[in-house]
């Protein structure tokens, strides 16, 4: 009789199973011995099946050659060994590299079968001698740097527009990075030919991108997927703003006092109050019209010019201790009051 006991174990060899089956398919001579054994003691029911576990026999090649890296001479031409970008191959690289997560109490993992080293792009094809050779090859196509462009001012004079792009390298199999498409254009506003109205309009159009302290207009584009497209877009923006700012629209005539970007003292109520005050001191209380107010000659009023300058700088240059003090001085002179005494 034969008892089929089939065990399905992952990866197990069937050799052991067939051994087992063979045992139960024994000849009649063995069966007698077995039967005798069975009559004396019970079969041990092997629930955990610990005996089935055998050592996994790893098939290793017995004829593994030594690494090519061990046989490389030190004065070889590395450019011939690694001519182009290639995934890391440990046996071809004669360096004792160790890279990767360091488990506690152990050394960092070596270069053989190191997934980390294989994942990342390596630049073994761009060693300095190779690059030098490449540069020498390209040099015949290059011209010299112009001698007169030897200072920052010269460069700014002749090439005022700066295009800034960035290239990225990071731990990934691909060298493409979506951030590389961003293009920034920087130009100084003083290099553009704009009159006062055009300059004001340009600054309003460009908005936040203008920095008054450094006088730089910075335009950034990242809406297109390719760098060249973004470059074209940025150039287009600059040209469009420039030409638009020279245009004068009809609705710009409706610019009110609140929209003015600087303080024009003549058109402001400050002048009105000064003129009124002056007239009262002369005991003439007239009601002048708006035009007369703006046309009124301030130099008639003693210390009036100084007051005008002080108020304009107070409003235009922003408020600070210095401007307030100047304003105070001017007003005191106007109203005929003694100046502030400086107590040491």
């Amino acid at each position: 009789m034969s008892i089929f006991i089939k065990y399905y174990k992952s990866g197990g060899l069937n050799v052991a199973f067939s051994n087992k089956i063979w045992r139960y398919n024994s000849t009649s001579a063995d069966m007698a011995i077995n039967k005798g054994e069975e009559e004396e003691e019970f079969r041990v029911l092997d629930i955990l099946k610990k005996r089935q576990r055998q050592q996994r026999r790893v098939n290793r090649r017995a004829d593994v050659q030594p690494d090519r890296a061990d046989r490389m001479p030190t004065d070889q031409n590395w450019g011939n060994v690694w001519p182009g970008p290639k995934t890391f191959h440990p046996s071809s690289v004669p360096l004792p590299l160790r890279q990767g997560y360091v488990p506690k109490g152990q050394a960092p993992p070596g270069k053989k079968a190191n997934a980390e080293l294989m994942k990342i792009p390596n630049f073994l094809h761009l060693t300095p001698p190779v690059i030098k050779a490449q540069c020498e090859a390209i040099k015949q196509f290059c011209t010299e740097w112009p001698k007169l462009l030897n200072s920052e001012e010269a460069i700014e004079n002749h090439y005022p527009v700066e295009i800034i792009t960035s290239d990225y390298c990071h731990a990934s199999p691909s060298i493409r990075n979506p951030l590389a498409r961003i293009v920034t254009l920087r130009v100084k506003l003083s290099t553009l030919k704009l009159d006062q109205h055009a300059r004001d309009k340009f600054i309003r159009l460009v908005g936040e991108r203008y920095d008054p302290e450094t006088d730089l207009v910075t335009i950034t584009a990242d809406r297109c997927p390719i760098r060249k497209q973004n470059q074209d877009y940025v150039n287009y923006l600059l040209t469009a703003c420039y030409h638009e700012s020279w245009n004068f629209e009809e609705w710009e005539r409706e610019k009110m006092e609140e929209d003015m970007e600087y303080y024009n003292w003549d058109k402001n109520p400050s002048k009105r109050s000064l003129v009124n005050w002056y007239l009262k001191t002369q005991n003439q209380s007239k009601e002048l019209s708006d035009e007369e107010y703006s046309n009124y000659d301030v130099s008639q009023i003693p210390n009036g010019e100084e007051y005008k300058v002080a108020v304009s700088s107070y409003m235009n240059d922003g408020e600070s201790e210095g401007t307030v003090e100047k304003y105070g001085e001017a007003v005191r002179k106007l109203l005929g009051l003694p100046q502030k005494k400086v107590v040491s």
């Binding site: 402001n268 109520p269 109050s273 108020v311 409003m315 408020e319 307030v324 007003v331």
Partner: peptide, 24 residues
Amino acid sequence: DSYLPRYLLYKKGFELLDPFVPIE
């Protein structure tokens, strides 16, 4: 934010009081 007179008085106050003598 600031203790200087023009910021505190707003535009209206400044226009009403101009010319005034500021005393720190």
